[in-house]
Design a protein around this nucleic acid. Structure first.
Lengths: 231, 231
DNA sequence: GTCGCCATTTGACATTTATCAATTGATGAA
DNA sequence: TTCATCAATTGATAAATGTCAAATGGCGAC
């Protein structure tokens, strides 16, 4: 594996503080692979052979049951996914597919488990990462259980607007995936966008503009303990 | 703190493997308290002063937003809660109240964070516990997003039936809390029970009987990657 | 540029779920 | 026992959300 990839991975908080010797041991079994768009990387119920790291591109975590499918999250560079399955050596609970052409690093799960038993800094980093993952899912559950779909969309737009830093921005995913992520149908999403016009939201294809953020926020009532994914 | 309590706590997987010296250090700052029913133990958004352990009784984890409230989980002996907030030193995302008279052990969060930096076995146990918590919430999200309320209730009953080991059992929580936990109103739950009569479910107050588990399962389509909380 | 494809939108309608009000039923106190 | 209380149920209705089919519109292949 090229040194540049190693440095990218080393820069992740998960690996930043660990012993160099242990890091090199991890990297020995690691390989980097390029995938075209819409390729299934892992499938739920499979055994966790590798810890995945998205280096470029993006990955959709989704799940299926009884012929239905739901998008659970999007993983963007540079971060890992399915850490929980890896450390506990239990089957994946979600499937993952590339959304676009992506470069993914694959670290053998067995190596991860072996090293984290020897390296306290690595173990600490895993604890911190898992705690953050856990908190993200709890926030998502609160979003789903406490809000209507219109409120979820409104708060999603406020989060995106905050991330962009401007009142005009582009949606970062297909609307059908956004609908699935927000727990609604594409048709319902389309109507929800219409419903937010009353609060100054204008939509043109993927371009969103928020006329009056305060007005939208008055409706959406964003809350850091639901909407702030960074804590 | 009495030795018997210490032994109970020591028996938890989270503390079982750690160094005795470190365990004693943790226990020095720990105290055990009795709480009457319906007492708020912690409130979301507060700083995580203590890691809580339910020794007896039961605790409801719930959350509120915009005047609405939802029950997220029930914690039963002997297990901890709000570990993620404690290890990352971030505000609670959920509130907790006793459901009945309960004995709770309180371990200062700062001690937990200090010890897990020194004790690899403890760090490993925290990783394992957090990964399990994470997976539980993911399963819960799948349940919410992929199933209708009738299907959620059907699968809930199958889980309870499996736990009880018999086709007749008692509901372990108030129906209004069950409704909230399943993401529906009490009225809707009442009608959902009626709707499951077609699959052999009989309800009399808190007593449930399942005439033909296979028939119910044919409708509910239980799936270990949603319904099996033990993995 | 034109065509065909596919995501999105729109409309009509069905289903699910929530809300509100009234009633029932169980439980404990006086 | 009788009453008061509160959870649970029921009925009527409203709101939210989903489904199906058809129309629209953007975009790349040719």
């Amino acid at each position: 594996m090229p040194e540049s990839h190693k440095e990218e991975i080393r820069g992740l908080r998960l690996f930043a503080e660990m012993d160099e010797k242990h890091f090199q041991a991890l990297m020995r079994g690691t390989y980097v692979q390029n995938f075209p768009p819409r390729i299934d990387l892992i499938h739920e119920e499979d055994a966790p052979d590798f810890l995945h790291i998205v280096l470029t591109g993006s990955v959709d975590l989704y799940t299926s049951w009884n012929g239905r499918e739901s998008s659970m999250a999007t993983v963007r560079p540079i971060s890992t996914f399915i850490l929980a399955a890896t450390v506990n050596d239990l089957p994946y609970l979600m499937s993952a597919r590339t959304l676009e052409r992506s470069r993914i690093a694959l670290i053998p799960s067995s190596e991860v488990r072996e090293v984290f038993g020897k390296d306290v800094a690595f173990a600490q980093a895993i604890v911190s990462e898992l705690a953050q993952c856990y908190r993200s899912v709890v926030k998502n559950t609160k979003d789903l259980k406490l809000r209507t779909s219109l409120e979820r969309l409104a708060n999603y737009l406020i989060r995106q607007q905050t991330r962009a830093g401007t009142t005009e921005f582009e949606l970062t995913m297909e609307k059908r995936r956004l609908a699935s992520f927000l727990g609604m149908t594409p048709e319902n999403l389309s109507r929800a966008f219409k419903g937010l016009e009353a609060y100054g939201v204008k939509v043109s294809a993927n371009h969103i503009s928020v006329a009056d953020p305060d007005d939208l926020a008055k409706f959406a009532k964003p809350n850091p303990f639901i909407d702030d994914y960074s804590t």
